[in-house]
């Protein structure tokens, strides 16, 4: 039974990586046709993407949006995680539901709701509305990352600081904050990745300046081409590298305590 299970697990993981492996393979194949006899190795699909000015502009927009969304989500996520896991608070249950709701509500429904709000409030759609909207759906994840670091901090340290005469604020600044710093950094990176690859919400609330995901959506929708494969591969590996970095930072936050 154990061998059958091992085989099953391998098969499932192969399924999870099959699509990514395929686009990676054909992004390196020297032919416009994506079919099995490989025609040889090439990097010119990557050169095509990197030389495309329209994509370059979208990429810069994405970077600046993701940079700011990651800061907003990390600051709010830190406040939420502290309130949920460190300092007792009133209305904890409803706060948790409110925090998780954006993760479970269908994104398109949240998108049309925000569209109506911005419309009623007379706010023109811009990168500002994109940043606000994305922060809402990234917040559950950044809170989770920071909370996972906070719950490993020994409460005894706070008591010790109080016994030594530290005020609540100085105990926080000199004990809790240094211990949660890695959690904040990990949250920033995860939020950056989630923001940069978000599409449905972004498409609804973005104005004239369009991030990369909105820009390439119609290409992805209507065309198949090796240079789109190359673009997708760069996005995937960029994201994976950043997430690996965040995970490394988060784990070191644990080890320093251990």
């Amino acid at each position: 039974m154990s061998r059958a299970a091992t085989f099953w697990v391998w098969a499932v993981f192969a399924f999870m990586y099959l699509p990514i492996a395929m686009i990676a393979l054909f992004s390196l194949n020297d032919s416009k046709i994506m079919s099995l006899p490989f025609s040889g190795f090439t990097l010119h699909w990557y050169a095509d993407v990197l030389g495309d000015g329209r994509l370059g502009g979208g990429f810069l927009t994405t970077l600046s949006v993701a940079f700011l969304v990651a800061i907003c989500a990390t600051v709010l996520g830190a406040l939420a995680a502290l309130a949920l896991s460190f300092y007792p608070m009133r209305g904890r249950g409803i706060f948790t539901v409110l925090l998780l709701a954006p993760f479970l509500i269908p994104k398109l429904i949240l998108a049309v709701a925000q569209l109506i709000l911005f419309n009623e409030a007379g706010l023109p759609r811009s990168l500002l509305t994109v940043i606000g909207a994305q922060t809402v759906i990234v917040l559950p994840f950044s809170t989770l990352v920071i909370a996972s670091v906070l719950i490993r901090i020994d409460r005894g340290l706070l008591e010790a600081a109080a016994d030594l005469g530290a005020s609540g604020l100085s105990a926080f600044r000199r004990v809790v904050l240094p211990l949660m710093a890695n959690g904040l950094l990990a949250s920033w990176v995860v939020a950056f990745v989630l923001s940069s690859s978000e599409y449905v919400l972004t498409a609804f609330v973005s104005g004239r300046a369009q991030p990369l995901s909105v820009l390439v959506a119609s290409d992805f929708r209507f065309a198949l081409s090796p240079s789109l494969n190359a673009l997708a591969v760069m996005i995937v590996f960029g994201n994976i590298a950043l997430v690996a970095l965040a995970e490394l930072i988060r784990r070191r936050a644990g080890q320093a305590r251990g």
């Binding site: 709010l76 406040l79 608070m89 409110l98 429904i109 909207a133 922060t135 809402v136």
Partner: peptide
């Protein structure tokens, strides 16, 4: 804890609860 949560709560009410109520 309540003070810490307040800005987050305000943000979520502004950009998640209010839009859904207007909807």
């Amino acid at each position: 804890g309540t003070y810490l949560a307040a800005p987050v709560m305000a943000f979520l009410i502004a950009l998640c609860v209010t839009p859904l109520l207007i909807l």
